[in-house]
């Protein structure tokens, strides 16, 4: 109680300067219908925006293509564009034999893309800024790739770490480096996405706080606008990067020889 009062007093002091920064509050997981307890099944803002993501994917990929027209409508073109984009990416990066994994990679791409864009709606909740979410996605890719590698190639999959094109003397050293880099992959894979989205959203929030100052508000609004444009780009690029890295990792599993 005394602690709370103390904190409130500190906040009032901050308000006195006219600037209140809470750039990270937007990433808090909160129950939708009041209360503070968050158990595993509580409907939260995270759940709401995940549901809206699924809805967005449904609208674009199913409702948009309902015409099944040979000459596509605008909505159908978007769905076909997304389909062709990921299909071609898998073909180019991983090879034709990876097309059996197309639905999974397409799921990843559409899910991350829609989350990134929905997260850009003001007052929304960006799920891809959550390390818990991106870590699950990245580790799912990591385990899937490792399992596919061992199932398809058995112990030959370990050849991935034994660089036969290097001189024999430095191969053990390279093997250690390769193993480390292999296990760092899911970490960098998840933090890259969450970090990019978190940073962009936090910067916009900081600009928004500055907009409260009359003298700085035009600059702050300009800054928000510019950052928003940049974040639109980041939203797409990060979804693309996550997907193409998945394809690259999958290529290692399917064709482990360098």
């Amino acid at each position: 109680m005394a602690d709370n009062a103390h904190a409130a007093a500190a906040d009032h002091a901050a308000e006195g300067t006219g600037l209140v920064f809470h750039p990270m509050d937007q990433f808090k997981v909160q129950p939708l219908f009041g209360g503070t307890d968050v158990s595993w099944y509580t409907p939260t803002n995270a759940m709401l925006w995940l549901a809206l993501t699924v809805l967005a994917v449904f609208l674009i990929m199913v409702v948009g293509t309902r015409g099944r027209a040979v000459i596509p409508s605008r909505g159908q073109s978007i769905g076909e564009l997304a389909y062709g984009f990921v299909h071609k990416m898998i073909e180019d990066v991983t090879g034709k034999d990876a097309l059996v994994y197309f639905p999974y990679i397409m799921t990843l791409f559409m899910f991350i893309l829609m989350n990134n864009f929905l997260g850009l709606i003001p007052t929304s909740f960006a799920n891809t800024a959550q390390i818990a979410v991106t870590a699950v996605l990245a580790f799912a890719v990591f385990f899937a790739v490792t399992i596919i590698g061992f199932v398809k190639h058995g112990s030959h999959f370990l050849g991935l770490f034994w660089v036969t094109s290097a001189p024999l003397a430095i191969r053990p050293v390279l093997a250690v480096i390769e193993v480390i880099s292999y296990f760092v992959r899911p970490v960098s894979h998840s933090i890259r996405l969450a970090g990019n989205i978190t940073a962009g959203h936090a910067v916009m929030k900081v600009f928004a706080a500055f907009a409260g100052l009359v003298a700085l508000s035009p600059l702050a609004i300009l800054g928000i606008t510019a950052m928003y444009g940049l974040e639109m780009l980041v939203a797409f690029i990060q979804a693309y990067v996550f997907t193409i890295l998945t394809c690259v990792y999958l290529k290692d599993a399917l064709h482990p020889s360098h």
């Binding site: 595993w40 509580t42 995940l50 549901a51």
Partner: peptide, 12 residues
């Protein structure tokens, strides 16, 4: 909150 997030993520 991880349990909640991961559960709904898997559902989604």
């Amino acid at each position: 909150t991880f349990g909640n997030q991961i559960f709904w993520l898997l559902v989604a």
